[in-house]
Design a protein around this nucleic acid. Structure first.
Length: 268
DNA sequence: TTGGATT
């Protein structure tokens, strides 16, 4: 039988066998949760440079930098998976809040979320999506097409824009596309009340189509809404229709301003 | 009166 106390091994080995860990497989426990999420990276940083930065803390198993699907530009966010948890912990200690050489902004380094728990929001949006959409797309009616054309002109600040390019976005590749992010079309919503929460954004934008994500921006201390939020929608047509419909919409005693998100504030 | 980002 197995329990021959007289043949018990020295303490160290005994402790290992008690946990079911063998010398041949020193894995699981020590390599679990060694995956890091890194944000605030310089847009110019390559995957190789990212690895070089982190390699001083241990053996890197995988790395990734997220990029905009249309422009291919880095989103300043990446992942580093170390061989061991302790290496990841040391990398956080050493690199979180630090500025990589040549960078102007500090980076954030923390343990990554579990990818399987990603966005209950995205799952929700699937539920909202199909049956009750007010404006199914893509649009084919000529009048609606014309309105989209005008929206594009406003969004891109150009005087004329051939309607023929609306259906496909091919001619827009390489442009700085307002509102476009790696996950869809980002919409800026201004003039929310201080006690707004995410549900109001879902309710406002959900009827227009596939909503990937919503965010109410809150003050760190008071936890009150700072008056604006963001909504990311999958499809351009639906985002444009939501903007056209909700900009100027009266919510309580406030009039919303809704537009594609632009880069920061530019003075008038 | 334009964030944070989760392979």
């Amino acid at each position: 039988m197995e329990h021959k106390k007289s043949r018990r091994e020295p303490d160290r080995f005994y402790a290992l066998t008690k946990k079911g860990v063998s010398y041949a497989r020193p894995s699981s426990a020590s390599i679990r949760d060694a995956n890091l999420y890194v944000s605030g990276l310089p847009k110019t940083m390559t995957q190789k440079e990212l690895e070089q930065l982190f390699s001083q803390y241990g053996r890197i198993i995988t790395s990734r930098i997220l990029v905009d699907q249309v422009t291919g530009v880095s989103r300043g966010v990446g992942f580093i998976r170390f061989d061991k948890r302790i290496e990841a912990e040391e990398a956080i200690k050493g690199l979180n809040g630090q500025k990589p050489s040549g960078a102007t902004e500090p980076i954030t380094v923390k343990f990554a979320n579990n990818p399987s728990q990603k966005s209950s929001q995205a799952l929700l949006s699937q539920l909202y999506q199909s049956p009750n959409r007010r404006y199914p797309g893509p649009l084919h009616h000529q009048a609606q097409r014309f309105r989209l054309d005008n929206l594009l002109n406003m969004a891109y600040g150009v005087k004329r824009f051939s309607p023929i390019t609306i259906d496909g976005m091919t001619s827009l590749v390489g442009m700085n596309i307002p509102g476009h992010t790696g996950t869809g079309w980002c919409i800026f919503v201004y003039n929310l009340s201080p006690d707004s929460d995410e549900s109001v954004l879902w309710q406002l934008f959900g009827p227009f189509g596939a909503v990937n994500n919503v965010k109410v921006i809150r003050d760190f201390n008071t936890n009150k809404c700072k008056g604006f939020g963001f909504v990311t929608m999958t499809n351009y047509d639906e985002a444009a229709m939501a903007i056209a419909s909700l900009n100027g919409y009266r919510l309580g005693d406030r009039v919303l301003q809704v537009s594609f998100k632009t880069n920061k504030a530019h003075k008038s």
